[in-house]
Design a protein around this nucleic acid. Structure first.
Lengths: 140, 140
DNA sequence: CGATTGTACTTGCAAATAACAAGTATAATC
DNA sequence: GATTATACTTGTTATTTGCAAGTACAATCG
């Protein structure tokens, strides 16, 4: 029998995590970074979820403050920034994949491309590594 | 190279999930159910996070509506209800464990009991099964 | 070169939501 | 019969969000 208390968890991991991304918009921003190739401010605005610009700006700033994402000037365009996941942010990929898997199992409205879903069920570790590699390269 | 778009995801799994538990309080309620043995309304109130009673009531109702938790009259006490995770709710345990693991790795304030953290790193599948079994039994 | 467009925001205001405090209903206990 | 326990609801105030507009600066167009 597993001890199922967090009495000793003075710094509770869920409280910490919830404060960072326990928020509708932050989760969608992370999704866009991980799976939609979003890089610029406008990519998040155009993701089709209807986020307003002030909320987007505040969430990006918060995620940057927390060290989950980073922002660099775009060498290709003066006034533009490239947003990307830090290693800490990349560390959230396994959790996101579990969430995707859960929705795929329990929500019949959810449509995950079948190849992705299959890989998710069959070999999660390899899929995770492939996505991380991919993100690291496009970030360079 | 993995296809990293959710263009075809008409029913996006992250959007679905974020709408259900992409919320500070819902995550803490799920934590209390999974790891703190919370069963009654008062248990959530007394979890020490300072949730107010109207918010708790609305979140419990929402999670019940979404089929993540269920509520049954307590046979031991007339006016009391026992809250518990449904199978759908139990399905979120792997995601929660990933989140806990992430916080343990990246937040130095986070304190997970070392035995738990070790099991989490070493044999996640077994740990998950043990917790689910445990929860299922205490729910009966 | 001046005007327009693209990009990443900020500001102001109305509307929605959350926090706080108090009250209610019913069952059990003293 | 009065008090306590439990799970809420209701009302009010404070905070956050959503929406619309505006700003600042770089690049591009004519």
């Amino acid at each position: 029998m597993v001890k199922r208390t967090t009495d000793g968890w003075h710094g509770c991991p869920i409280r910490y995590s919830a404060a960072i991304f326990g928020d509708n918009w932050c989760l969608l921003i992370l999704r866009d970074l991980m799976f939609k190739g979003a890089k610029h401010y406008g990519d998040f605005m155009d993701a089709g979820e209807g986020i307003s610009t002030n909320i987007l700006a505040s969430r990006l700033a918060k995620l940057e403050d927390e060290g989950v994402i980073q922002k660099h000037p775009d060498p290709e365009h003066g006034k533009r920034f490239v947003y990307s996941l830090t290693n800490k942010g990349l560390g959230l990929l396994p959790a996101m994949l579990e969430i995707i898997n859960w929705a795929e199992v329990w929500d019949d409205q959810t449509e995950v491309p079948s190849k992705f879903a299959k890989e998710l069920r069959k070999d999660r570790a390899t899929l995770t590594r492939k996505i991380v590699d991919d993100l690291r390269h496009t970030n360079d």
